[in-house]
Simulated scan of single mutants.
Amino acid sequence: MKIVVFGGTGFVGLNLAEVLLARGHDVTLYDRAELPPSARRSLADYGARLKAVQGDITDADAIDALIAGGCDAIVLGAAITAGDELERASTARVLEINVMAQIPILLSAIRHRVRRVVNLSSASAYGAAGARVEILDEETPCDPVSFYAISKFTSERSVARHAELFGGDFLSVRLTAVFGPWERPGSVRDTPSLQYQILAAFARGEPAIMPEPGMRDWTYAPDAAEAVAILVEAERPRHRLYNISNGGVWPALQWGEAFAALHPGLECRLAAPGEKTAIKLHGPARAALAVNRMADEFGWRARFGCAESAAAMSAWLAQHKEWI
Rank of each mutant, 00 (worst) to 15 (best):
M1R: 07
K2H: 09
I3R: 00
V5K: 01
G7A: 03
G8L: 06
G10P: 04
L14D: 11
E18N: 00
R23N: 08
L29D: 13
L29N: 13
R32L: 15
R32N: 06
L35T: 07
A39G: 06
A39T: 07
G47F: 13
A48L: 03
L50P: 12
A52C: 15
V53Y: 01
Q54C: 15
I57T: 12
I57A: 08
D59P: 06
A62C: 06
D64F: 02
L66C: 09
G69F: 10
C71R: 02
C71S: 02
G77W: 08
D84I: 14
L86Q: 08
A89I: 04
R93I: 02
R93L: 14
N98K: 08
N98T: 14
N98Q: 12
A101S: 15
A101G: 11
I103E: 09
I103H: 12
P104C: 05
I105G: 02
A109D: 03
R115F: 01
S121R: 03
A123N: 14
A125P: 02
A128H: 04
A129W: 01
G130F: 04
R132A: 15
T140V: 15
P141W: 11
P144C: 10
F147M: 08
S151H: 05
T154W: 00
V159F: 06
A160E: 14
A160D: 15
R161E: 15
H162N: 06
A163W: 07
E164T: 09
G167R: 06
S172E: 01
S172M: 02
R174S: 11
F179G: 08
F179P: 07
F179V: 12
W182A: 09
D190S: 10
T191N: 01
L194M: 14
L199G: 00
F202A: 08
P211L: 12
P213Y: 09
R216W: 03
R216I: 09
R216M: 05
D217I: 05
W218Y: 07
T219E: 02
T219Q: 01
Y220R: 07
D223R: 05
A225D: 08
E226P: 01
I230M: 11
A234F: 00
E235I: 14
R236K: 15
L241P: 10
Y242L: 11
V249F: 01
W250L: 03
Q254E: 14
E257M: 13
A258H: 03
G265V: 11
L266W: 09
E275P: 08
K276S: 14
I279Q: 04
G283R: 10
P284E: 14
R286G: 05
A288S: 10
A290T: 00
N292L: 02
A295G: 00
D296K: 09
F298W: 13
G299Y: 08
W300N: 10
W300R: 12
G305V: 07
C306Q: 06
C306P: 00
S309C: 01
S314E: 10
A315P: 05
W316F: 12
W316M: 04
L317M: 15
A318P: 01
Q319K: 15
K321W: 03
